[in-house]
Each structure stands twice: as structure tokens, then as C-alpha cells.
Simulated assay, not measured.
Amino acid sequence: MTELIKAYFWPLIGGIIGLLLAVLIITFGFLKTLFVLIFMVIGITAGYYIQKTGILTNVFK
């Protein structure tokens, strides 16, 4: 079972993301889903920047 997951890891991730997007679009509609996705990208970008620069690591030491 673990070999199966390792062999098809990225297709499984893609399928899960596709399923999540479909549920969001059906539940909230296209524009609200797009709004959520835009803020997710902004949050991921901010988190990556904070991790890369180490701003919070220096603050909490």
C-alpha cells in the first residue's frame, strides 16, 4: 500500500486539490472560490517570505 502511495503521490495530491476546488465552487460559487484562492496564495507567499528571511525566528529568540 505504501509503494502505491509513493508511486502515485503527485497524482493523488492533484486529485485531492481538484476535489477540494470542485466542492468549493459548488458550495460557494466561482467568484467566492477565486477570492479564497487569491488570499491563500497571498498567505502562502507571505509565509514563504517570513520563513526565508527568518523575521519571526529572530523575534521569538
Rank of each mutant, 00 (worst) to 15 (best):
L12G: 10
T45S: 14
N58A: 12
T27N: 10
V36S: 10
V59W: 04
L4M: 12
I26P: 00
E3C: 05
G54N: 11
V23G: 01
I44L: 14
W10Q: 08
F39L: 07
Y8P: 02
K61Q: 14
L37K: 01
K32G: 00
I26Y: 10
G15V: 08
L12W: 03
A22R: 06
V23M: 08
I42V: 15
Q51I: 14
L56F: 13
T33N: 05
A7L: 11
T45H: 05
I16G: 04
T2Q: 07
L12Y: 06
I38R: 01
V23N: 06
Y8C: 04
I55T: 12
L56C: 02
T33W: 03
L34Q: 04
I5E: 06
F39V: 11
K52Q: 11
G54L: 08
F30K: 05
G54C: 09
I38H: 04
I17D: 03
F28C: 03
Y49L: 15
I13Q: 07
L20V: 15
L37S: 09
I16L: 15
Y48C: 10
G54W: 05
F28N: 08
Y49Q: 06
L31D: 05
I5L: 15
M1V: 13
F30M: 04
V36A: 14
I44Q: 03
N58K: 14
I55W: 13
L21E: 02
I16K: 00
T57W: 01
Y48P: 00
A22Y: 12
F28Q: 06
I50H: 05
K32R: 14
M1H: 07
G14E: 06
G14N: 12
F30Q: 01
T27M: 06
I50S: 10
G14M: 09
F9S: 08
A46K: 06
L56H: 02
M40H: 02
G54M: 08
